[in-house]
Structure formats: structure tokens, C-alpha cells
Computed example of a mutant assay.
Amino acid sequence: MTKAEVILAISRKTGLEKEDIRIIIDGLVSVVQDSVVADQRVHFSGFGSFFRKKRAKKIGRNISTNTAIVVEEHYIPAFKPSKFFMAKIKASS
């Protein structure tokens, strides 16, 4: 589902204008990104949490030159679904 499809689905469900929903979604994404960058966990009850995850330093391999490279310690964005959300996904299969 694309962002445009999400906006359309929310618009149909709520009766709100698509442009208003676009502004809200853009704001939500911006707040989540800024919070995760600032190492703050963003939790939505019944959905899950967005957070920053640390990746340890490791040795990688450049397959085109067959040489070892060092991949420094770094952070990545992560999402952990709630137990309710996981149960809903499992029940749908």
C-alpha cells in the first residue's frame, strides 16, 4: 500500500479531506523520525514501537574485490510490533 492509498483509505473512513490527512501523515512521520533520531522510543498502544537499534562493529566483505572491510558501529531504525498486533497477524493466516 502506498502513501497515496493510505491517505485515500483514511479519507474514505473518516470523511476528512485528503489534503488534511496528507498533512497529518507527513507530520506524524516527521515526529517519529525526529524522535527516533533523538533516541526516544515512539510507542503506539496496540500497534508497536519505533526505536533506534545499535549495530556492533563487524568485519564485512567487498565481494567485487574479495577484500575484508570494517563496518563501524552504527544505529538503524527499528520497529517492534505489539503483542496485540502480532496476535492479529497470526490469526489472519
Results as ranks from 00 to 15, higher is better:
56 A>I: 06
1 M>L: 09
90 K>A: 10
49 S>E: 14
81 P>N: 04
7 I>T: 10
76 I>Q: 05
5 E>S: 11
39 D>I: 02
1 M>T: 06
12 R>S: 13
51 F>N: 04
3 K>T: 13
85 F>G: 07
39 D>N: 14
53 K>F: 02
19 E>F: 09
7 I>S: 08
69 I>Y: 08
73 E>Y: 09
4 A>V: 11
7 I>D: 08
38 A>F: 01
50 F>D: 01
92 S>A: 12
16 L>D: 12
50 F>Q: 08
14 T>P: 11
64 S>T: 15
62 N>I: 04
55 R>M: 10
83 K>M: 13
89 I>M: 03
67 T>M: 02
25 I>L: 13
35 S>Q: 03
62 N>H: 09
89 I>N: 00
55 R>K: 15
63 I>P: 15
87 A>V: 10
71 V>R: 07
66 N>C: 06
78 A>V: 01
55 R>G: 05
52 R>P: 01
45 S>T: 15
63 I>C: 12
78 A>W: 00
48 G>R: 03
80 K>L: 10
13 K>N: 12
78 A>L: 00
13 K>A: 13
35 S>M: 04
74 H>A: 03
64 S>R: 15
4 A>S: 14
91 A>H: 07
8 L>C: 07
53 K>M: 05
73 E>D: 14
32 V>M: 12
58 K>S: 14
62 N>V: 05
9 A>H: 06
54 K>G: 03
76 I>D: 01
90 K>T: 10
71 V>F: 07
68 A>M: 09
93 S>N: 04
22 R>I: 05
12 R>W: 03
40 Q>G: 01
66 N>R: 05
22 R>P: 12
41 R>S: 13
60 G>R: 00
91 A>P: 08
13 K>T: 06
39 D>K: 10
81 P>E: 03
29 V>G: 05
92 S>M: 02
50 F>R: 03
92 S>Y: 00
45 S>N: 14
31 V>T: 15
74 H>P: 13
68 A>K: 09
51 F>H: 10
4 A>F: 07
21 I>W: 04
33 Q>F: 02
59 I>R: 14
80 K>I: 07
84 F>D: 14
72 E>A: 11
2 T>M: 07
66 N>Y: 04
27 G>V: 02
66 N>E: 15
23 I>R: 15
60 G>W: 00
32 V>L: 10
35 S>T: 01
44 F>T: 13
47 F>Q: 13
74 H>Y: 11
6 V>P: 14
66 N>G: 08
79 F>H: 02
10 I>A: 13
51 F>K: 04
85 F>H: 10
52 R>K: 11
77 P>N: 01
39 D>W: 02
47 F>D: 08
35 S>A: 05
5 E>P: 05
23 I>H: 12
60 G>V: 00
3 K>N: 14
85 F>I: 11
82 S>P: 15
61 R>Q: 11
77 P>I: 00
81 P>Y: 01
35 S>Y: 02
61 R>N: 05
72 E>K: 08
87 A>P: 11
11 S>Q: 09
85 F>Q: 10
81 P>L: 03
30 S>I: 07
46 G>N: 04
16 L>Y: 14
49 S>C: 13
67 T>C: 05
74 H>L: 09
78 A>K: 00
88 K>C: 07
67 T>I: 04
36 V>D: 02
1 M>I: 08
36 V>Y: 01
8 L>S: 12
64 S>N: 14
52 R>C: 02
6 V>M: 13
